[in-house]
Every structure is written in C-alpha cells, then in structure tokens.
Amino acid sequence: MNSILDNSIPVEWSLVDDTKEAFETFVKAHMKKAYFVALGLVGNHDDALELSQEAFSKAYQHRRSLNAQGKFYPWFYQILRNLCISHLRKRKHRRTLPMDMPDGQTLDVPSSPGFEPDAIAERNETKDLVWKAIGALEPKHREVIILRHFQNLSYEEMAQLLFCNKGTVTSRLYYARKRLKEVLEQEKGGQPV
C-alpha cells in the first residue's frame, strides 16, 4: 500500500500528464482517503462527499500552483481541510435558536451539530458517545484525532500534512485527548473515562 504522502501519481498528473484520463486515475486513487478525512472533520456523509469532491475540483483548477518539488498530498490536504473548516464555520453561524420558546424552556442544542451517529459502523452507546465528543472538539484538535486514529498516520506523516514539527503534533494530540476526555466525562455525568 502506498504511503499517504506518496506524491508520484499526483505530480505526474499535475505537471506532466494533464489529461482528463490522468486526472480521473488520480481522483479514483485518492477519493476514499479524501472522503474519510472530510467525514472525520464534518461528521456526516452528505457534507463529506460534497466537500471532498469540491476539493478535487479546486485542486484541478489550481494545479499549476504546485511546483515539481512540492509534495502533492499535503498540498491537496490543505485544500480539503480549508474547505471543511470553512464549512464548519458557516454551519456554526447557521445554527439559530427559535425566538418564541416559552419561558423556562430551553432548547437541547447538540454539542456536535452535523455529527451524525450513522457515520460510524457497528454502533453502540459508547461509540456514539465518543463520536459525539469528537464532534464537540475544536477543529484543530479534532483534526489530529482523526489523522491519528482514523487515518493511522505516524507523527512524522501528520507533521508533514500539518506543516509543523513532530513536537507540535505531540503537544496538540495531548491537548486534544485531554479535551476529549473532559467532554466524555461531562457526557457521562462526571464519571471517569
């Protein structure tokens, strides 16, 4: 299996072989990876599909901005994550509360809007809770959890994707897991994880 950072196919596609067939080969080689990254970041199938397809379309439009020395996947990943983060920001702003709630009643606003439980396989109560808690994390924390746990990337690979050093990855993972633990404990009514 090729490494996630393997840039042989994309650079060929981008700079040498600019045909529709080469782009098709490239999309088909990376579509699942792109979809699952987006799914981890935005939490539901429809948005993940839409955003990952949009990222490929944008990559095609801006393919000339990648130079021959550039690693392809980190470049593509930046397009994808920026689209997902921008989408999350818009979704956050779209969340509105009805104005005519009777006095004393509160609306149960989910802490992880858009994170649908059916995005995970073989569901059970614990998995649903963890998935919900991941959805409640800040995007930068959620991102490292996804890359580590769902994409199985090493720290070195994560550092290359996030354009930072391994120390930053380690530290971000620590705070992400710490926050995840706190959110889970809150969801469990104060019980330890």
């Binding site: 699952f36 059916d118 995005a119 995970i120 396989a121 998995k127 963890v130 746990h149 897991r177 994880v193």
Partner: peptide, 18 residues
C-alpha cells in the same frame, strides 16, 4: 491509564463505508 482507555475507545470506532 485514562489515556489508554480513551485510546482504546477511539480506536474501536470505524467510519462507515458508503
């Protein structure tokens, strides 16, 4: 120990395939 337990819970999650 708490982080180990958390990691195991997170590792158990598999995203569903379309």
């Amino acid at each position: 120990e708490e982080f180990k337990s958390l990691k195991s819970m997170t590792d158990n999650i598999v995203l569903s395939e379309p």
